[in-house]
Each structure stands twice: as structure tokens, then as C-alpha cells.
């Protein structure tokens, strides 16, 4: 029997996963293929977390939520760098066309550092036209030295189905996390693995009258591996983890009239959520 030649990195990864399987305290081999949020319900719905080597779309729920969406993207990048073992020494590339930068502001180094990413690990690409963005993002996704590639697009016209498909394939080839930050949600179908809508939510009060930790409402709009739904999350920029905030007594932070779950994952899940909703409402 002839064994096809494989690249040394692949052999090493296979060996590592075998060793990891032998050692109980190591993370499951799955941890190198998905990025778990660390929020059980969300991770279960996503089939373990955001798939690595895939493209994910992140859209603001409303134009004013763009800042929250950008912060979530950056938080995901920080989370990926810290959590995925093979990303430990890799970097983050953020592609932003100039028009998008003028509209929504440029990344600000101290703010990036405050959210947990050292500016030394962030490369920014400012493009004159959105058309170059898809090309640059595809090239970057194929590069195995980048952990996370963020492409920001304010104009949807350049992202047709073919371009998105190419980006998905490139992400699969490179193994990194491809995040597409679209300023406007497109109605069209997309080959991306998930589409997450981000809305800013009132922060958790710190009890002293100041601003609490910023919260976001994450809605899974499209999910190839499971149900959709919405979750209230907090990015802890000191610990670099996502948390589900403890439920507050009053006031009710979420719109409660709307049923949040489109496709229940499992009956007990749905039951739990109904219970929770009832608690919120009551």
C-alpha cells in the first residue's frame, strides 16, 4: 500500500490529535476545528462553535449597531487567538475600504488594545475601492500565517455569490477564521457558514451609576449546522471570554414580545428557553 505524501504539519497535527485523545486533560481534538463561544446554548446551536476554516457573516442589526458589530468581530478575533492552539502565534488582518472607514471610523489602536488585541498582532489594509477587498481577502484567507481575516464591506454589490463562494473556499484552504463584516445585511443567499446579526444591548449596570460591561444581542440568522436563535452576550475584555450575563430583575433588557426561536434544536432546549422567557416576562 502506498501512502500519499502529506505535508509535515498535517502529520504533526494528526499525531497531536492522537496524543490529545490519549491524554484526558487536553482539550478535545474538536477544539482545533471550531471556535467555541464558551456559552453552552449558543455553542450547541452552532454545533460546537464557529467553524474554523470557514466564512462567517456578521451584520449589524441596525445601522447604529455597527460599532457593536465591529467590537464583536474584534472580540471573536481575540477569542480565537487565545483559544485555538494553532493560532497562538498568528496575526489578524483587517481589510477596510476607505469609504467604509470614513463612514464608520477607523480602528483605533488604544481601543483595539483595550479590547484585548495587541496592535502588534493586527495588520490593517485600507483599500481605495471595495472591489479590491474581495481579492485581498481571498489572498489573505489562503495565507496560513493569519489566524483571522476580517473583511469589511459597506457596499454589497461587489460581494456576489461567486465572490462569496471563492472566499469560502479560500477560508477552507487556509484554515483560518474568515469574518465578513457587512454594513448592510444582504437579502441574498450566501455560502457563508453562519450569519450573525449583532445589536448593541444596554450594558450591565455596575451598581455605581457608571457604564457597565457592554452587552450585545447576538442573533444567529443563518446556520448551516443547527437552529437559529438569539443570545445576550458580554465580552469580558479583561479575561478575554464571552459570558452570558446573569439575568437581571428589572428593567427587561430584551424585546420580549417576539418569539426568538425559529427552529427549536431539541424539545428540552425549547422548553428551557420558554421557561426563561416566561421568567423574563414575569
Amino acid at each position: 500500500m502506498t501512502v500519499p505524501p502529506r505535508d509535515p504539519g498535517e502529520i504533526l497535527r494528526a499525531l497531536r490529535s492522537r496524543v490529545a485523545a490519549l491524554e484526558a486533560h487536553r482539550p478535545a481534538p474538536d477544539a482545533e476545528s471550531v471556535l467555541a463561544f464558551g456559552v453552552p446554548g449558543l455553542d450547541r446551536a452552532l454545533g460546537g462553535g464557529l467553524a474554523l476554516g470557514a466564512l462567517h457573516e456578521i451584520v449589524p442589526a441596525a445601522p447604529r449597531d455597527l460599532g457593536a458589530a465591529a467590537a464583536t468581530v474584534l472580540a471573536l478575533a481575540v477569542h480565537a487567538l487565545g483559544r485555538v492552539h494553532r493560532f497562538a502565534r498568528r496575526e489578524v488582518l483587517w481589510i477596510q475600504p476607505e469609504l467604509a472607514g470614513r463612514e464608520a471610523g477607523r480602528l483605533y489602536g488604544p481601543g483595539v488594545a483595550a479590547l484585548g488585541l495587541s496592535p502588534a498582532r493586527l495588520i490593517e489594509l485600507r483599500l481605495a475601492s471595495e472591489r479590491d477587498g474581495a481579492f485581498a481577502m481571498e489572498e489573505a484567507l489562503q495565507c496560513r500565517a493569519l489566524a483571522v481575516v476580517v473583511g469589511e464591506f459597506s457596499d454589497d454589490r461587489v460581494l456576489d455569490l461567486v465572490a462569496l463562494r471563492r472566499l469560502s473556499l479560500a477560508a477552507g484552504a487556509g484554515g483560518g477564521l474568515g469574518l465578513l463584516l457587512r454594513h448592510r445585511a444582504a437579502a441574498l443567499a450566501s455560502p457563508a457558514a453562519t450569519r450573525l446579526a449583532i445589536a448593541a444591548a444596554p450594558g450591565l449596570p455596575d451598581g455605581l451609576g457608571g457604564l457597565g460591561q457592554p452587552a450585545i444581542l447576538l442573533s444567529v440568522l443563518r446556520n448551516r449546522r443547527g437552529p437559529t436563535g438569539r443570545w445576550l452576550l458580554v465580552w469580558d475584555h479583561h479575561e478575554h471570554v464571552f459570558r452570558e450575563p446573569a439575568l437581571r430583575e428589572a428593567p427587561v433588557p430584551l424585546p420580549v414580545a417576539e418569539a426568538p426561536v425559529d427552529r427549536p434544536h431539541s424539545p428540552d432546549d425549547a422548553a428551557a428557553r420558554t421557561r426563561r422567557d416566561r421568567r423574563r416576562a414575569g
Binding site: 504533526l12 495588520i123 490593517e124 485600507r126 481605495a128 485581498a136 496560513r144
Partner: peptide
């Protein structure tokens, strides 16, 4: 082969060649 410093340098070179060095930045 996971240490991709050279690969990253090459990507930065290519992007800088294509779009101009002042567009590929670090803060």
C-alpha cells in the same frame, strides 16, 4: 510548518506591491 513568519511577510509584500505600501499598515 506552522511558523508562518515568512509566509506572512510575503503576503504583506504582495499586498503592499499591489495596493501600495502605505495602505498595509500596523498601528
Amino acid at each position: 510548518a506552522s511558523d508562518g513568519t515568512a509566509e506572512l511577510t510575503h503576503l504583506v509584500d504582495r499586498l503592499s506591491t499591489r495596493f501600495g505600501a502605505r495602505r498595509v499598515t500596523r498601528q
